Simulated scan of single mutants.
Amino acid sequence: MVGWIIRTLVLCFIVGFVLSFLHIDPASILTNSWQTVQDIAALVIDAGRWALPYILIGAVVVVPLSLIGLVMRWNRSRPPS
């Protein structure tokens, strides 16, 4: 029971910290829920626009290496003919 209370308090702190960082306050969540949802969606879209170029650049290296590793693992797991 005490462990659950501590985990809940820590989770509340983390969520509160993140919401505060995103400039979302409890009053706006309770009184203007739709605007809060729209603000969160706008934040997610902006984060996606920021991250997408980095994801694409990384994919140029990561995807071919992952495919090579997948093929090598598949070849090792096949029984010899």
Rank of each mutant, 00 (worst) to 15 (best):
M1S: 08
M1V: 06
M1G: 10
W4C: 10
I5K: 09
I5T: 09
I5S: 04
R7S: 13
R7K: 12
R7Q: 14
R7P: 00
R7W: 15
L9M: 12
L9V: 15
L11V: 11
L11E: 06
L11K: 15
F13H: 13
I14Q: 03
V15Y: 04
F17G: 01
F17M: 04
F17I: 00
L19E: 03
L19R: 08
S20D: 05
S20Y: 10
F21Y: 11
F21P: 00
L22H: 05
L22K: 14
L22V: 14
I24G: 03
D25W: 13
D25E: 14
A27V: 11
A27F: 07
I29R: 03
I29V: 15
L30N: 03
N32T: 14
N32G: 11
S33N: 10
S33H: 10
S33R: 09
T36L: 03
V37H: 02
V37P: 01
Q38H: 12
I40C: 02
A41G: 00
A41S: 05
A41Y: 09
L43I: 13
L43T: 11
V44S: 04
V44N: 02
V44C: 06
V44E: 03
I45K: 13
I45Y: 05
D46H: 10
D46N: 09
R49N: 06
R49H: 05
A51T: 01
L52T: 14
L52S: 05
L52D: 02
P53Q: 01
P53V: 00
Y54R: 14
Y54M: 12
I55W: 05
I55H: 02
L56H: 03
I57Q: 05
I57A: 06
A59W: 12
A59E: 07
V60E: 07
V60F: 12
V60A: 15
V61C: 08
V63Q: 03
V63G: 02
P64A: 06
S66Y: 05
S66T: 00
S66Q: 05
S66P: 00
L67T: 10
L67N: 05
L67A: 08
I68L: 04
I68F: 01
G69K: 13
L70G: 03
M72Q: 15
M72E: 15
M72L: 13
M72T: 12
R73M: 09
R73D: 06
R73E: 06
W74Q: 12
W74K: 11
N75C: 10
N75G: 11
N75S: 13
N75V: 08
R76Q: 06
R76E: 08
R76V: 06
S77M: 14
S77F: 12
S77G: 06
R78L: 13
P79K: 09
P80K: 15
